[in-house]
Design a protein around this nucleic acid. Structure first.
Lengths: 217, 217
DNA sequence: TGAAGATTGTCGCCGATTTGACAATTGGGG
DNA sequence: CCCCAATTGTCAAATCGGCGACAATCTTCA
């Protein structure tokens, strides 16, 4: 099962070999079709997950009827750490967007690992820390930067996270991530396209010039 | 952002007695005058801090020339955990707003505690988790809720966090927290005042009706 | 293949917010 | 104690973004 885990995720590869192996030893491989829900908002923690192939997104519902994609997870990414660490309910829906291969370390199995390797808690804490740092910069951007900058940042982040230039995302989702209407997002995106930064297509966006895109952000 | 920190801090009181005592044993007490900077943005971690008396605020600078108060820390609150756990630079300035009594567990001392009590990492991770959950709800609010709701939430949170009805904060700071102009914040606040929810004064706001204020949020 | 649903591109209007400006009030330091 | 800086209260003009609407394009599935 570990064959596919060669994707270099900064968190997982930074783990001490013993703890990394302990996690993999207890992980179960599974596959999930598009649309499947790994877990839902409010669920009690059921363990740790990793994306081996495909794509998973964490989506939240800030208000009734509003959906906001919080994070796009590419192969190599581990997720679900927050609830595993503090025992609280899941803050997101985790939904499969492209047919996915997953790893699952059930909660009981994780606790066995933790009993043998207490420092796994520090590792998990560091994962939460990286999420927290992302959230902090996002909050700063959200209220202080103009729309174009926020959009550019989200786009560049999505492209870099997925490791590919083509990002499969609806303009409506992008708009929700940045907190503007679809129409406004569309106008800004077409501005980027005219500048040669990106290319727009049905249901996906291709980042042509990551350099300048990050320069905008 | 608003973190709930009463005198009996939920995080610290939830610690196992052994680890709580180990922290206190290594903590040094100190006092700092108004305006003092406990640490600054970008500093390397120097350990864990706690507010015993007075008030400390974590402020960030989302863009040049813009200042945004991220969190108000009242007696009982521990802070600085993020950089201690992941070793990264401080994401905030920690500044003393009212003459403060502080506890400081230097980084080396903390690592001694951690060597003897590895589970302290889980405790620290859970503190980061609570911050992360606050950040997640904040991000949802920021882009989906109207201004009045956001302002009411920030105000109610600040009052509850400080444990007193009088909150010493400039309207300009409040505006920056919710991401609107000072004029707009002022108009909304005066609306609250006319409704009897709060009372406005020079440099401070008194929450008269916490119940209804939270009902607005 | 064909039709239905989903997504994008693009209007114009309207309300809300920002910006800039200025007076009034308050608090602190010389 | 008084002056100056900081903060608040308020206004008008200008701008920005949301909303509704609609056509065009694309995908999917029967």
């Amino acid at each position: 099962m570990s064959a596919a885990m060669t994707i270099s995720d900064p968190w997982f590869t930074s783990l001490a070999p013993g703890r990394r192996q302990a996690l993999l030893d207890r992980a179960r491989s599974s596959s999930a079709p598009t649309g499947a829900r790994v877990y839902g908002v409010g669920d009690p923690p059921d363990g740790l997950w990793a994306v081996v192939g495909g794509e998973v997104r964490l989506v939240s519902y800030p208000a009734v009827g509003i959906e906001s994609v919080a994070m796009i997870l590419a192969p190599g990414a581990w997720f679900g750490e927050l609830s595993v660490l503090d025992g609280g309910p899941r803050p997101h829906d985790a939904v499969v967007v492209r047919p996915a291969e997953l790893l699952h370390v059930p909660l009981a199995a994780f606790e066995q690992v933790a009993a043998a390797h207490p420092l796994i808690y520090r590792d998990l804490g560091r994962l939460v820390c990286s999420r927290q740092r992302s959230a902090l910069t996002f909050m700063g951007q959200a209220i202080a930067q103009p729309i174009a900058v926020r959009l550019a940042r989200v786009l560049a982040g999505a492209a870099r996270a997925s490791g590919r230039a083509q990002v499969q995302v609806r303009q409506e989702d992008l708009a929700a991530m940045v907190g503007v209407s679809r129409q406004t997002a569309n106008r800004t995106l077409r501005g980027f396209e005219r500048a040669g930064l990106i290319e727009l297509a049905y249901g996906r966006i291709t980042v042509c010039d990551p350099e300048r895109l990050r320069a905008v952000a």
